[in-house]
Design a protein around this nucleic acid. Structure first.
Lengths: 258, 258
DNA sequence: AAATGATCATAACAAATGATATATAGAATG
DNA sequence: CATTCTATATATCATTTGTTATGATCATTT
């Protein structure tokens, strides 16, 4: 394999669904929560204008700082994390294309966690004032952002479930299912899998396991012909089987209006 | 010990700080996030008017239902929880006096978790329309509720840290520290401890441990002369020592404005 | 008073997971 | 091309934590 082809797949992962990238992912994500008028549509699309490519393993926001702008993910996957004094890292959330981190955090004086890229990404900074103007002038966007936030809260609660009462293989399976579902919702995954530079250490830091045990679990999942993780890609062999092990119920990702 | 004195402490826990109960706990909690004008003050106090006493181990909201009102806790402790198909329970949050569950959830069509009391409580229902009117007419309250919600999110993230990368004794210690700090903020705990009908099974369902192992941990904490849990009370012998084991940093409970 | 049921305590054993060490492969670097 | 670094794979052993079982205690009910 040549270095050239590698670079290409890293920076331009195959568009999984036809037309998937004609819409900005944030439009795609937010319109799932209700109709946006053309003006709102255009305004959101404009957010991607100043987007920049960033490499993998790079911090976008650092613990202790006072952010003056939110981060919008357009391509790739970003995570929130924190370190314990002992040095162990805990990832507390993933951000996939269309996710905004975080509409409300920009009001805080001190971040208590960092935000960093996993693989190569394309992200845009959204200044605090721009964000405030959006929610003022575009009620449809404000509403959609509220639902997006509800989904985020549900997701964190689901992680508490995952860490608190599921076994190692269930936890890893659940995480792989969640990422699959979220990436598919914005056109970055097919039924067959998704491109994602996720190391076994990352999985360990997310699921509260050791890297060695994650390796054991991944081998088992491979032998069970459910999923293959590696080579910067998650290849799903048996989606139903994987979801069954994880007890994965996607509804927490899409809260419905009452 | 006589049955009478037990009943008394259960229904009327000693007021820990002088004057602690002259203010409604929600006023006490929300004014920590910024000044409230007298009108807002009165409006919040009015929320407690229709409060009712409820016994321990009772569900206030049930998974799958569509809530038409939020729950405001005035006395006692309430928790959110969910069951896995296998039957194991995971508690995902505690609500102490002054906490409102949940300003935004009442918009959902289907709750995906239940809310139930731990010990005897006093709670008030707040209809959806009342809540909406509050945030419309009282910007100070709306602002404070946003901060309260930020604190709640921070807390859930802290739980992810707790479950994901702390040992059994650290997890239990951290939970006991968090409850102590939150109860003290609203006048329901002193430096010496707090009244709370928390079973070892509850602790297990919160920390992702088995009840047997929680028992082992509590014995160790007792032998280390840090804390004694039992008899519907948490008696803190060495707060600094307990916080040290837990690596407890209270700042996540009080996000500061930027 | 007897019976019931919940909670707590503890022991003995089993299972899951963590820690350490080492080897390999691949990518990045000089 | 050699080198270095990172990620992966696997084995061995240690430790933590879970499971099952049993008895004690205490409150509640009959």
């Amino acid at each position: 394999m040549t270095a050239t082809s590698t670079t290409l797949t890293m920076h331009h992962p195959a568009a999984p669904s036809p037309g998937g990238h004609l819409l900005h992912p944030i439009v795609r994500k937010l319109s799932a929560y209700g109709p946006l008028d053309p003006e709102e549509h255009a305004a959101l699309t404009g957010l991607g204008a100043g987007a920049q490519r960033v490499e993998g393993r790079l911090d976008l926001l650092v613990e202790g700082s006072a952010p003056d702008s939110a981060v919008l993910v357009l391509e790739g996957v970003v995570c929130r994390y924190r370190h314990r004094p002992s040095g162990t890292r805990q990832i507390t959330a993933y951000l996939v294309p269309g996710d905004l981190c975080d509409p409300d955090f920009v009001h805080l004086s001190r971040l208590n966690h960092s935000v960093g890229t996993l693989g190569p990404c394309r992200v845009a900074r959204v200044p605090r004032e721009v964000l405030a103007g959006f929610t003022e002038r575009h009620p449809g966007i404000a509403r959609a952002l509220r639902y997006a936030k509800l989904a985020e809260e549900e997701t964190t609660r689901e992680w508490v479930m995952n860490l608190g009462c599921r076994s190692a293989i269930e936890r890893v399976s659940h995480l792989l299912c969640e990422l699959h579902e979220r990436l598919r919702a914005v056109g970055w995954a097919t039924r067959a899998g998704y491109d994602l530079a996720l190391t076994q250490q990352d999985l360990a830091d997310t699921t509260g396991l050791s890297n060695v045990h994650v390796n054991r679990v991944l081998r088992q999942l491979r032998l069970m012909r459910l999923v293959e993780v590696g080579g910067k890609r998650v290849e799903i062999l048996d989606l139903a089987g994987l979801q069954a092990i994880a007890e994965f119920q996607a509804d927490y990702l899409r809260p419905a209006a009452g």
